[in-house]
Simulated scan of single mutants.
Amino acid sequence: MNILLWHVHGSWTTAFVQGPHTYLVPVTPDRGPDGLGRARTFDWPASVREVTPEELRDTHVDLVVLQRPHEWELAGRWLGGRRPGRDLPAVYLEHNAPDGDVPRTRHPCADRPGTTLVHVTHFNRLFWDNGAARTAVIEHGVVDPGHLYTGRLPRAAVVVNEPVRRGRHTGTDLLPGLAGAAPLDVFGMATEGLAGHLGLPPDRCRTADLPQRELHAAMAERRFYLHPVRWTSLGLSLLEAMHLGMPVVALATTEAVEAVPPGTGTLSTRPEVLARAARHYLEEPQAAAEDGARARQAALERYGLKRFLADWEQLMTEVAS
Rank of each mutant, 00 (worst) to 15 (best):
R213G: 14
R165H: 01
L117H: 07
E50P: 05
P211G: 05
P228N: 12
I138D: 07
R31V: 12
L5R: 05
V64L: 05
V25I: 13
A195S: 15
V158M: 02
A217M: 04
V118Y: 01
A97I: 13
K306V: 09
D30P: 00
L239M: 08
V65Y: 04
R104L: 14
K306I: 08
G32L: 14
E139I: 09
A320H: 11
T254F: 13
W12T: 01
R222H: 08
V273Q: 12
P228I: 14
V143W: 00
T13I: 12
G37K: 01
L174D: 02
L315Y: 06
G265W: 05
L305G: 09
L153A: 10
Q314C: 10
P20E: 04
T116S: 06
E54M: 11
P262R: 13
P29W: 02
M316R: 11
V260W: 04
A110N: 03
W44S: 04
A39W: 00
M219P: 00
E284V: 11
L117G: 03
V102P: 04
L184V: 07
D185N: 05
D209Q: 14
G37N: 06
L238A: 01
D58Q: 12
A220K: 09
G141Y: 09
M246L: 03
E162M: 00
E313V: 10
R213K: 11
R134E: 08
A190Q: 08
A156L: 02
G37S: 07
G114H: 07
H119K: 12
L117Y: 02
L238D: 01
A182K: 01
P69H: 06
F308G: 05
A298E: 05
V159N: 01
E313A: 15
P103I: 14
L226F: 05
A295D: 03
E139M: 13
